Amino acid sequence: MGKVYEQIDSDLRAFIEKQPMFFVATAPAEGGRVNVSPKGYSDTFAVLDERTVAYLDLDGSGIETVAHLRENGRITVMFCSFDRRALILRLYGTGRVVTPHDAEFPDLLARFGPHPGVRSVIVVDCERISDSCGWGVPRMSLDEERSTLDRWAVRQDVQKTRDYRAKHNRTSIDGIPGLAAGETDPATVHS
């Protein structure tokens, strides 16, 4: 049976910090498509306090999470253990998008490892923290993190990044607004 926690305690924090990847799920307010995104790079997720977490939103071909959060704020983050310990941890909450234009962006950015191509930081206020067994999840080992996304982002100059984001990140696949025109400029600093 699963357990509900009042907060992210030291054991849950250690579990989260050990995971090489996590999943993010969001959905539009009405109709539209539910989105589930796998996220990698072990240094792109941070526990800010006992009920607040954040992660780097790196360049990508879609903008579903940002669009959904701006529309309704609903988000679930899931960590799934693939090692000996069978455990799934879900963080249900309300998310918000912090862009390079926001005053808190530099302080949040400092919490993560160095990555180019940062579009924003997603901050989640956790309303429910719960686990489940994960007995049906296979055991797998991590060979290595892929560096492809970081290498791609480094090769882009300011104009290429701006053009890419304008083409792929202005609206979700359901037409919900994502990044505004002024938000497509790349951040002048890396995380």
Results as ranks from 00 to 15, higher is better:
Pro28Ala: 01
Met140Ala: 08
Leu149Met: 09
Arg74Leu: 09
Leu58Trp: 02
Met78His: 03
Asp43Arg: 10
Lys3Ser: 07
Thr188Trp: 06
Glu30Pro: 11
Thr148Ala: 11
Ala103Arg: 15
His68Cys: 05
Glu71Phe: 06
Pro186Leu: 01
Ser141Phe: 11
Arg74Ile: 07
Glu183Cys: 05
Ala187Phe: 02
Val124Met: 07
Gly95Ala: 10
Asn169Pro: 14
Ile176Gly: 06
Gly117Phe: 03
Tyr41Glu: 15
Pro186Gln: 02
Glu30Asp: 12
Ala29Met: 05
Arg155Asp: 13
Val121Gly: 01
Arg155Met: 12
Asp143Lys: 15
Val137Gly: 07
Glu145Met: 04
Glu50Lys: 14
Cys80Lys: 07
Ile173Trp: 00
Arg170Gly: 03
Ala86Phe: 04
Arg84Pro: 10
Pro116Asn: 09
Ile88Tyr: 10
Gly113Ser: 10
Ala181Cys: 04
Asp150Arg: 06
Glu17His: 12
Asp43Ile: 02
Ala181Gln: 13
Leu109Phe: 11
Val36Asp: 03
Ala153Arg: 05
Cys126Phe: 04
Ser130Glu: 13
Pro138Phe: 02
Thr76Ala: 11
Asp83Asn: 12
Arg151His: 13
Arg74Tyr: 01
Arg51Val: 09
Ser132Glu: 04
Ala27Cys: 08
Gly178Thr: 03
Glu17Lys: 15
Ala166Lys: 13
Lys39Arg: 13
Gln156Ser: 09
Ala86Tyr: 07
Asp11Arg: 15
Asp157Gln: 14
Pro177His: 02
Cys80Gln: 11
Asp131Glu: 14
Ser37Tyr: 00
Asp83Pro: 14
Val189Ile: 15
Trp152Asp: 02
Arg119Cys: 01
Met140Asp: 05
Arg51Gln: 10
Glu144Asn: 15
Gly113Lys: 08
Val47Pro: 11
Val154Pro: 06
Phe112Leu: 05
Trp135Val: 01
Val189Pro: 03
Gly134Tyr: 10
Val118Phe: 04
Asp143Met: 15
Arg85Ser: 07
Pro116Val: 00
Phe105Tyr: 15
Ile122Phe: 05
Arg170Leu: 06
Phe22Val: 00
Lys167Arg: 15
Leu48Met: 12
Thr171Glu: 09
Gly113Gln: 05
Leu12Gly: 10
Asp185Pro: 05
Gly93Tyr: 05
Trp152Tyr: 14
Ala67Lys: 09
Val34Leu: 09
Gly113Thr: 04
Thr188Ala: 12
Val124Asp: 06
Ser191Lys: 13
Ala14Trp: 13
Asn72Glu: 06
Thr44Ile: 01
Gly136Tyr: 00
Ser191Arg: 15
Asp49Arg: 14
Asp9Arg: 13
Val97His: 03
Asp57Phe: 02
Leu149Gly: 09
Asp185Gly: 11
Val154Gln: 03
Gly134Val: 11
Asn35Arg: 00
Arg170Glu: 00
Asp143Leu: 15
Thr94Gln: 08
Asp163Trp: 09
Ser37Glu: 05
Ser147Gln: 11
Arg165Phe: 01
Glu30Gly: 11
Glu104Lys: 14
Val66Lys: 06
